[in-house]
Simulated assay, not measured.
Amino acid sequence: MPTSLNTIIKPDMTPDVYGRIPMVCESGLAMTKASMTRFIMHVLKHNIELLSLHPFNANYHGCHVSAAVRIKPDQIAAFEAETGGKLQEPATLNLN
């Protein structure tokens, strides 16, 4: 039994069999035809696994969209340049 009550839960960052790691995109994507088309076309053309896609409020055109993807580290710069989204590692949960 641990002596401390602090628990840190880190996401699994081990690459899958294709060398892809999980990343989240929480800025730069909007619910517009242009933004979503660029994003989906890039994901499909480059064998990027789409884990989740969530609009902030689907009732409003142009609302913020967050996405989780599984991507190769060498594809991150091209993804950010093409889609306008900024990728970052998934959040770490710290329970006190």
Rank of each mutant, 00 (worst) to 15 (best):
K10N: 15
E49T: 13
E26R: 12
N47Q: 12
E82R: 11
H61N: 08
H54Y: 07
N96P: 12
V65R: 01
A30Q: 09
M1G: 14
G84E: 07
T14M: 05
I71H: 03
A30Y: 04
R38F: 04
E26F: 00
L44Q: 14
V69K: 01
P22Q: 07
Y60T: 13
L29G: 01
M36D: 06
L51R: 12
H42D: 10
Y60Q: 11
A91R: 11
R38G: 01
I76D: 00
P73K: 14
A78L: 14
H64K: 13
T92F: 01
H64R: 15
H42P: 00
E49M: 08
A81Q: 12
I76S: 01
K10H: 10
K33D: 11
E82I: 08
N47T: 09
A78S: 15
L87E: 02
S4G: 05
R20V: 07
R70D: 04
V17E: 14
L5K: 12
I8F: 04
I76R: 09
L29R: 00
K33M: 14
K72A: 15
S52Y: 10
A34V: 11
L5P: 02
P55W: 03
D16H: 03
G28S: 06
R70L: 14
I40W: 06
K45W: 00
M13F: 11
L95M: 15
E89H: 13
D16V: 06
F56M: 12
H46D: 06
